[in-house]
Design a protein around this nucleic acid. Structure first.
Length: 593
RNA sequence: GCCCCAGUAGCUCAACAGGACAGAGCAGCGGCCUUCUAAGCCGCGGGUUGCAGGUUCGAGUCCUGCCUGGGGCGCCA
């Protein structure tokens, strides 16, 4: 931000430094000014002072002291009048602070926001396509809070990348085959034949049958022979079994779709494990023929010795198993084929991102390395966006196999129920339809916010109490600020006043709010660069807080006409920025609540 | 054994590619609804950023070692 202003500044700075024989650095170090109620940027003078001390051999001269002297010298010799937009220059504790003229810039910022509307914070198209694969649930299993993090993180990353100017392909990858499916089918055929899932909760029913299958097999291990026989039938392509598989798979998919609708998450391309299985097996054969894979069948599996192939120290990428000794496929078999298929369908992908939990880091490195060894030039464009898992209090890992989970459906329903009660309590005057809409917005917003308002590589401990706490740093706080802004505009009525430059001395709370609004587009880029939605959740909160401060300090409707006109525009700009920030987090911005 | 991640207030977490006195929320105590929605705001208390070194003008942030916790490591996904 303020690149133009800094450029002009540096031209003035150079001769002043040279006059003092201070070495001019290649780049100056700028920082944000931490003081509230001001707007501008700071220049750290320490590096200049350190360079001077070194160049002149000034032994025993403390750099901080020298920096402050230098800052004062510069402040005294720079004329704010010669620097566009700069109102005041101040030397403080080794920093040279440039305060901007808030009257000038506030108008620019507000006009821009209101002009760009929903596009404010969105950057020009880059003409680069990226694919983001996320969510990846298994059919025939439950969907639990653990899936929520990956799903929301992936979705928000897509939104952020889109806003940063990338063309995003949203991909999902469903685990629709494998042992878990066969076990499920075995249990169904033997104990539930002909049954159908209840319409209101298909996922739970599917998940329960899977848990039951595991329990039965655990209690009677001799039954495993039946499951193995079934797997054989599957592998031979038994039409009756395949038909049942497709039918039951559909039940899972319908259950997933319901959840995705609630979460407002969609996909452009859905891959199935089953569709890349044969390709994967063929690929492994080819790898064997080319000497990349070592075929130990039937005594052992087909493996790739990555460390040897890549000349890495033993134990770095270890050995990668790509096919079972009985010739059946593994996750790895299919993932190799999937990566290739993605680039066949979208040859121009600048990046193919895998939003997958951190436990699979080594595994994904192995996939990427294997593809590289195979000679695919795009292998360098594969990227693992790792996130830590969701655990229950006491570090209890969620396990679909034992059914030790918090079902996503239950969580969402409970959150909505809870939100309903709060809406009823806070705003009983609302009509029934609106109450319901607000309850949804608040409940889902809260869940999404907590999933994504955390460093990607830190675990989320799921706790009912905290997940359903709508106070403090949470989505409703931000939504509420949006509602208040809307309320002022509604009461003002009519069209917004024409653009105007403020004539009154801006209140520090006004300045803070404007500067939070102004910084939003930069935050979007930062979030995109680091694949870090946390940057945006933090900013959305800061923005809401700045608005609440402003709201509590600066009257809008009661203010004298010119101030009122300016503040109305400011409120409209704040509302728009809040809405845009929430949209990037896939959180609704209600008009009332 | 090797590798990865984390350790910040009583609790849950921030700290924008090293920068100003380490900030919020929750919990606790005390205030603010005849003025734009109190899902809000204000105030009080609370810290040797796991430990020990190092680099730097400057370290929660980078490097080394150690401690604690979590995860991964050839036929699960």
């Amino acid at each position: 931000m303020f690149e133009r202003e800094k450029q002009v500044l540096e031209q003035k700075l150079r001769p002043l430094l040279e006059a003092r024989e201070v070495p001019v650095p290649e780049a100056f170090t700028y920082v944000e000014i931490p003081f509230k109620g001001t707007w501008g940027f700071g220049l750290a003078v320490f590096p200049l002072a350190a360079a001077e001390v070194k160049a002149k051999g000034l032994k025993g001269v403390p750099v901080p002291k020298r920096a402050q002297e230098l800052a004062e010298y510069l402040a005294a010799n720079l004329d704010p009048g010669q620097l566009p937009g700069i109102q005041r220059i101040e030397a403080v504790r080794g920093y040279l602070n440039f305060y901007l003229d808030p009257h000038l810039y506030s108008r620019q910022v507000i006009d821009r926001v209101l002009d760009e509307g929903q596009k404010y914070g969105h950057h020009p198209r880059r003409g680069e396509r990226v694919m983001v694969e996320f969510s990846q649930p298994n059919t025939h299993k439950a969907l639990h809070v653990g899936h929520l993090r990956g799903t929301i993180l992936g979705d928000v990353i897509c939104r952020i990348l889109d806003a940063a100017g990338y063309d995003v392909v949203r991909a999902n990858y469903l685990g629709d085959i494998g042992w878990h499916v066969i076990k499920w089918l075995w249990n169904y055929l033997k104990y539930h034949k002909g049954e159908e899932p209840p319409a209101e909760d298909k996922i739970r029913w599917m998940g329960d049958l899977y848990v039951e299958a595991n329990k039965r097999l655990e209690e009677n291990p001799e039954l495993e022979a039946e499951v193995r026989d079934l797997f054989k039938r599957w592998d031979q392509g038994d039409p009756e079994l395949r038909a049942l598989w497709e039918k039951t798979r559909q039940w899972s998919i319908e259950g997933f779709d319901e959840i995705y609708r609630w979460l407002n998450v969609h996909f452009d391309r859905v891959y199935f494990e089953s569709e890349v299985e044969e390709e994967g097996k063929a690929l492994v054969e080819d790898m064997g023929a080319r000497g990349i894979a070592i075929d130990q069948r039937p005594e052992g599996p087909v493996i790739v010795n990555l460390d040897q192939l890549m000349g890495l120290p033993e134990g770095t990428l270890r050995t990668y198993v790509v096919l079972r000794s009985d010739g059946t496929s593994l996750y790895s078999t299919k993932d190799l084929a999937l990566a290739i298929r993605k680039f066949r369908e979208y040859p121009d992908l600048a990046r193919s991102i895998y939003v997958v939990d951190v436990r699979q880091s080594l595994y994904l490195k192995q996939i990427f390395a294997t593809l590289k060894v195979m000679g695919y030039e795009w292998a360098d464009r594969l990227y693992h966006l790792a996130y830590e898992v969701v655990v229950l209090p006491g570090n209890v890992v969620l396990k679909t196999r034992e059914g030790e989970v918090v079902f996503l459906r239950d969580l969402i329903q409970e959150a909505i129920r809870r939100a309903r009660a709060i809406v009823e309590e806070k705003n009983p005057a609302l009509d029934a339809v609106t109450k319901e809409r607000v309850a949804h917005a608040v409940a889902l917003g809260s869940l999404k916010y907590t999933m994504v308002a955390r460093e990607n590589n830190r675990t989320v401990t799921f706790d009912w109490k905290r997940a359903l706490d709508f106070q403090g740093v949470a989505a409703p706080y931000i939504q509420y600020a949006h509602v208040r802004a809307n309320s002022i505009l509604r009461k003002a009525g009519g069209a917004l006043p024409e653009p105007l430059t403020p004539a009154h001395a801006l209140h520090p709370k006004e300045v803070d709010l404007i500067s939070q609004i102004a910084v939003f587009p930069d935050r979007v880029l930062m979030a995109a660069r680091e694949y870090k939605p946390l940057t945006l959740t933090n900013h959305a909160y800061e923005l809401a807080r700045a608005f609440n401060d402003f709201y509590n300090t600066c009257p809008v409707l009661q203010a004298e006409p010119r101030v009122r006109a300016f503040r109305l525009r400011l409120v409209a700009a704040a509302k728009q920025t809040l809405a845009n920030a929430l949209a990037l987090l896939n959180i609704e911005a209600p008009e009332v609540m």
